[in-house]
Amino acid sequence: MEGATLFNTVFLTALFSSGVRQSVPLIFGSVGDCVSEKSGVMGISLEGEMLFGAFFSYFFALQSGSLWFGVLMGAAAGMVSSMLVAAWSVWLRQDQSIIGIMFNIFAAGFTNFLNRMIFGTSNANISIETFQPIPLPLLSKIPVVGEIFFHQNILTYLAVLLAVLTFLVMRKMKLGLQIAAVGENPKAAQACGISVYRYRILCYLFCGCMAGIAGASLTLGTVGTFTEAISAGRGFICLAIVILARWNPLIAVAAGFGFGSIQALQIRLQVQGSALPYQFFVALPYLITVLVLVLAGHNIRAPRELGVPFERESR
């Protein structure tokens, strides 16, 4: 009997529609990471920046009553915190992964601390009204597909729009050519008059900004409140998405949707109950992330100098 309920149209529509919602933070995060990895900086600290974005967007939205102000502040928080990471890893040339790890610990502790200080120890944080779905004219009328893709909140459309814009900048503009050159061969890029530090730091700030919006889309787009460790490893899932997408923002949208759907399935099956314990479904996205890294992660051409600090006067 279960098979019948699993695969009817209503269920699938609801599932994928929720999958799109779940994918929004993943898309923001991975598009940001595409750019920063192209320039040679790994987004290990994405997770922490997402947490910052999530907390501050929630906080400011609650204080000001404006969701948009919240998103803005979330983006700002992501960007400011990423400045810290950029300074340490690009300018001071420290190991990017260690900085990232430490920053994530810091972010988890700090947002947790602020949350407790501001909203107290009880978990019953005040909920706020999230962004409401805006059906797109005409497109949302398409059966099934319209319901899934064109009946979403504004952040979803924004995510796809930004992904397309990023794709265009990376492929069609000189900037994209320069960014990829920095990640590929920073010495040569420098000889062409490109400031490697400036490009890497700016790319990383863009990534932080996107991670901040990703966090905002969690609190203001789906959940409606901030809970501790709300990002739950999404920052790292983004890293896997970027590899799966071969550093292409458009494919990242599709891959993000895939991961979002898995997450949606997990939630649905938890609620609906199934023969398997719900913990299996909670663990599923993480398991798939590992599988993706293993299966999609070798024999690929990553930016050549990814994760390698650049020294201006190196010989």
């Binding site: 000189k174 050159a181 062409c192």
Partner: peptide, 30 residues
Amino acid sequence: MVHQHFMLIGRYNAVENICLIDRSRAFSYF
């Protein structure tokens, strides 16, 4: 300057490599 070890991006073709050194602005159509 032509360096002893060439300063070229291996993945790019000549046009793309040379475009990098172009004076045009970063936010312009390539």
